[in-house]
Structure formats: structure tokens, C-alpha cells
Design a binder for these strands. Structure first.
Lengths: 154, 154
DNA sequence: CGATATATTCGACATATGCCGAATAAGTCA
DNA sequence: TGACTTATTCGGCATATGTCGAATATATCG
């Protein structure tokens, strides 16, 4: 655990980690990866794969795969240490990158729908251009929210 | 297919359906449900389970389960017919409901993070309030986009 | 009510996925 | 280079999930 010395707090930590996992697993995130994200959010400093495996009580290979997955989701980032092969992980503070991934999905969907509107017959065509536009509108909203967030941060 | 009479178009339809499926399956949507969504988007009118099973070449039970799933996702809606048990399905035009589901997830995550910030130690606490705020900002952005969309619609 | 049509559920099978422990690769330092 | 450390991959097992066909439930109408 991020802080082993305090048993009282350990219970609350586990509770938080499980709460995070309960939100993420329905979205298709594997259990260990979901718990790892909660764990990283609580960690006061970057942690090693060994620490993850020990605290989460999973195999080192499992910890590695979960960490790699979070990396792909842009939810965690690795910190390479100079002068050693050891790699540490921490929760990502790069929220922009996370949303960029999401936005790309929305944009791709919109493109598919646009192409579809070219081949669809009468009543379906309007629906396709409409839904394509809808996805684009939400994507732009996310972009603008990101912009505002970035501006407020500095 | 929505239009069986034209073989040339049938190929493009299949292509579109597969395109949609390729975007949705990585998000955890089962293959048949994903293809069904593309199929419904192309359909010029509501379709029955039998038609779905026949055109998508799956068992009726499979068509039913897939349709039920899309219903839960708010991507499709069923149309009950008076005077008969028959049920027809069509792609949902209720984009608001779709986003509401998404927004609830974001809000839940923000709440979990807020609670976590109460139990976390020094360096992690700030990160938790920050990420909670971030999720709330994006949620509000989606809400506002929805509002704008709704306004533009009429 | 009985007959029919359709939706819905159920059990079984096949496939996919997560997790593990062992094996391998790759970096670091003496 | 060789010893050591740590990341990364790999094969197997257990579990979960999707799909199917058959069975069941439920509504409709004569």
C-alpha cells in the first residue's frame, strides 16, 4: 500500500481502490488494471512493478501487463530512471492526452457515418448525417473544454 | 439487408456495417451487437427480429440479445405494435439519452475521486481533487454541447 | 379455450481473455 | 566480459462471454 504503516488508513485505501475499479470494470477495463489505477492515484510517489505486484498481490507479469494497458489508455505514465533499468509508474497528470484518445474515436465514428450517408437510401441518409454531426459536436465540445482547462491551469 | 434488390448497394451496405463494427468492438461492444447497430442505421424503416436474424445471419436468440444490449446502450429503441406481440427495432434518434449515460459515469468517477481526496495523504490528495475537477469540467462541457444541440434542433 | 405467432429464457458448446509462473531478453555495473 | 537485476514475453490453465438451438412464456385472435 502507499502507506503500510497505518492500518486504519489501509482500509480506506482499499475501499477507494475498489470504488475506482467498480467504475472502470463495466467499461471493459480488466480488474487488475482498474485497481492499479486507483492504487496509482493514491501513491504518494512513483512505484515499481515489484511494489505494485506486492501491494496488489498479483504476479509481476500481471502487474506489468496492467501497467502497460494503463499506459495505452494514457491513464498512467512510466518514469525511466537513468543509470538503471528500473521503471517506475505514476498516475498520469496529462489529462489532455486521455481525451485526445477519446476524441479520435468520436471523429472516426463521424467519418464512418459520413461515408455511410453517401451510400444509404432516402430515410437513412438524413439520420446518418445527423448522427455524424452529433458526434462531431460532442467532440468539439470536449476539445473546447480541454482548451478551457488548459487555460485555467496556468 | 435494408434493400435486397440491389446487389451493388448490398456490398456497400456490408462495408458500412463492418466499418461501424470495427469502431465499436474495440470499445467492448460484442460483434453482433455492433453490426446490428450499423444495420439499423441503414434500415429505411423499423425491422423485426426475424428480419435481423435473416439479414445478419444469426440465430433469433442472438438477434434478440444484441437488440436488448443496444437498447441498454440507448443506441436503439423498440417500437411496440398495438394489436400484436410483434416488436420492431430502429436506431435511436435520442442522442441525449446516450450522452446522459456517459455523463453519469463521469459524474460517478468524480464523486469517487472526491471521496478519495478525503482519505489520501499529501501529494496524492491534490491530484485527486484535480482529476475530479477535470472529469466534472468535461462532463459539463458535454452537457452544454447537448444543450446547444437541442436548441439547434428546433 | 385452443391454436398460432412471437418474444424471451435456458443449457451447452466454443471461443476469447485474464492471470499466473517460468523462460527469455535486455540493460547495468564490476 | 560476466554476474546481476529488472523488464518483457510465452504457454498453459481457469474463468468469463458470445452464440446457438431448443424449450418455455406470453400475447393475439378465431
Amino acid at each position: 500500500m502507499p502507506n503500510k504503516s497505518n492500518d486504519k488508513a489501509a482500509g480506506e485505501f482499499i475501499e477507494f481502490i475498489e470504488d475506482v475499479a467498480r467504475q472502470l470494470t463495466p467499461l471493459g477495463v480488466p480488474a487488475v488494471a482498474a485497481r492499479l489505477y486507483g492504487y496509482l492515484l493514491l501513491a504518494p510517489e512513483p512505484v515499481s512493478l515489484d511494489a505494485i505486484a506486492a501491494d496488489l498481490q498479483v504476479a509481476r507479469s500481471t502487474a506489468f501487463v496492467a501497467a502497460r494497458l494503463l499506459e495505452q489508455y494514457m491513464l498512467a505514465r512510466r518514469i525511466g530512471q537513468r543509470g538503471t533499468k528500473r521503471v517506475l509508474y505514476e498516475a498520469s497528470d496529462n489529462y489532455e492526452a486521455m481525451l485526445v484518445v477519446q476524441n479520435r474515436l468520436l471523429e472516426n465514428l463521424a467519418e464512418v457515418f459520413d461515408r455511410g450517408s453517401g451510400v444509404a437510401a432516402a430515410p437513412a441518409r438524413e439520420r446518418l448525417v445527423e448522427v455524424a454531426e452529433f458526434y462531431r459536436v460532442t467532440r468539439r465540445a470536449m476539445d473546447e473544454a480541454l482548451e478551457a482547462w488548459r487555460a485555467a491551469r496556468r
